[in-house]
């Protein structure tokens, strides 16, 4: 559970930074404000998760700039708005699905935070879904779908291989109440349905495990 929680916090810190960058570049002023609000949520979730880590006996850097267990995709600025929305859907989506699997966690501090995080993530999901529909109807559709596939390569792997040691152990102790493959399938099916409703069929790439770094929970092509 230690690596999972650390990576959750590090990814949320990184996602917060990536969202903030697009808060001054979004295609509408409305979404710029929404991106700034979502950035603060992510930074807040990260900040509030580090004490959980401390409770697990991990020497966490509480100013939040220390951790590097983040997706390779979040190392640098997201290249375009399609990539932003893809991260909004899939990176945020995978992390939130994990958090939802911690609502009844035996790790009480995590369970307490999970409910608050889920309350705040509702608008992220609404923002991502609405933009996905808009992009699917516009001329950017193919470029957007390509970004989704690319983002899935990173976000889909965050839960690890089906027999991921960390997640399996967390499941046994009740720290997490839904297994990795089930979590991944929830996100995949939700995305496929979202696009199908717009008449877009998306085939997500098969995930292979070469280049998977279990310690940092990241994958590099």
């Amino acid at each position: 559970m230690k690596t999972l929680v650390a990576s959750l916090a590090d990814n949320k810190a990184a996602l917060g930074r990536r969202y903030a960058e697009w808060a001054v570049s979004a295609p509408t002023l409305e979404s710029a404000v929404a991106a700034a609000a979502m950035a603060q949520d992510e930074l807040g979730h990260s900040r509030s998760t580090y004490p959980v880590l401390k409770g697990l006996g991990v020497d966490a850097n509480e100013d939040g700039f220390g951790g590097d267990k983040r997706l390779a995709l979040l190392d640098d600025e997201l290249p375009d708005w399609n990539a932003f929305i893809a991260a909004n859907l899939l990176v945020d989506g995978v992390l939130t699905t994990f958090v939802a699997s911690c609502v009844d966690s035996s790790l009480e501090p995590m369970a307490a935070r999970a409910r608050k995080i889920l309350q705040e993530e509702g608008s992220h999901r609404a923002h991502g879904e609405a933009w996905a529909r808009r992009l699917c109807r516009g001329e950017d559709r193919d470029a957007f779908v390509a970004r989704l596939r690319e983002t899935w390569e990173h976000a889909g792997r965050w839960l690890g291989p089906d027999d991921d040691a960390e997640l399996t152990a967390a499941l046994q102790t009740g720290e997490v109440t839904r297994d990795g493959p089930a979590q991944r399938e929830l996100v995949r099916a939700w995305l496929v349905d979202l696009l199908a409703a717009e008449g877009v069929a998306i085939e997500l790439p098969e995930l292979t495990w070469e280049g998977w770094d279990a310690d940092r929970r990241r994958w590099q092509a």
Partner: peptide
Amino acid sequence: SAPAYLRAAAHAPALNNFGSAVSIIQDELA
């Protein structure tokens, strides 16, 4: 002021300070 403040926010001493800067940026955009 939003991109101007974002540029400077990269120098925030800690994550929560960066968050406060983003909050100010959100206000300016609104």
